[in-house]
């Protein structure tokens, strides 16, 4: 159960929020000038990394404000939350987190061996 620190309301349970997928995907300025392929990339394709993920959340059952977060999708740890328009942290800020950590243990499947940052 994620605990999300809404930059406007404070820490709240994940059930108050909705996720908006990848952050910083700009809508083409002149849609009519882009190709079908480029347009489909914008509409349908979003990053889906196992590891550091820049994403959007909205406090649906609260202030209804959108904001950005950086989360490790292999551990669900939220590493950073920042408002729209604020400079996103660079990947270097999270350099200890491999992009696709292979979390699963060598044997069995229990005890998901994820290293804490």
């Amino acid at each position: 159960m994620l605990l999300i620190n809404c930059p406007y309301c404070g820490e709240r349970d994940q059930s108050e929020f909705s996720n908006g997928g990848e952050a910083h995907v700009a809508r083409p300025k002149n849609p009519e000038l882009v190709s079908d392929r480029e347009w489909s990339e914008y509409v349908f394709i979003r990053a889906n990394p196992k590891g550091i993920f820049y994403e959007r959340w909205v406090h649906t059952h609260g202030c209804k404000k959108w904001f950005n977060a950086v989360r490790n999708t292999s551990t669900d740890e939220i590493l950073k939350i920042y408002k729209l328009g604020e400079e996103p942290p660079t990947l270097k800020d999270f350099k200890n987190t491999p992009k696709t950590p292979s979390g699963e243990p060598k044997v069995g499947s229990g005890n998901f061996a994820v290293k804490k940052l």
């Binding site: 159960m1 994620l2 059930s15 997928g21 196992k50 292999s74 551990t75 979390g103 998901f112």
Partner: peptide
């Protein structure tokens, strides 16, 4: 759940 995750775990809600 509405968010991306590879943890094989979701919200209790």
């Amino acid at each position: 759940d509405g968010y991306n995750s590879f943890t094989q775990r979701g919200g209790y809600n």
